[in-house]
Amino acid sequence: MAILNDENLAKVDKLVPKYPEKRSATLPLLHLIQEEHGYISNEAVEWVAERLDLSPINVYEVVTFYPMFKQKPGGKYAVKVCRTLSCALGGAYKTCKAFEEALGCGLDQTSEDKLASLEFVECHANCGRAPVVMVDEQMFEGVDENGARKLVEKMREGTL
């Protein structure tokens, strides 16, 4: 499996020289891989290391630090419920329960039908619209239990 498609490879070639030091391109490269494959394999880690003249451990240390980088494939959708105080005050924990029930899976798990992976995340800087939920790159505001169920329905229908 290619680590990146041609379009993304071209992006890499443009991106790396922009930084005063190559190593800085670690995060952007990992983002490209995560976006293309949904996760970052060890081969990808080695590829990034090679591309930036690093040791694989240098990249591995970074991948494992950041929750946005996954080391295994997840569901079709990534559901991220903000659990931090303002959202919790607005009912985020109930929202999360509703997701768990609707998807039939627990936190940090992927639903059996591989529709979605569910996780708690920390404050997404939209606390005035609590509870906040992100599905992939899209943000949803004021997601109560009902809202959670509707989102799952839409995912099932493929209309999200």
Binding site: V45, L54, S55, P56, I57, N58, Y60, E61, T64, F65
Partner: peptide, 17 residues
């Protein structure tokens, strides 16, 4: 450069690649 820490916070763990 073969050693490093993975994960974070109190789960940080020393490892080789």
């Amino acid at each position: 450069d073969v050693l490093g820490f993975i994960d974070r916070g109190s789960y940080s763990t020393l490892t080789t690649y």
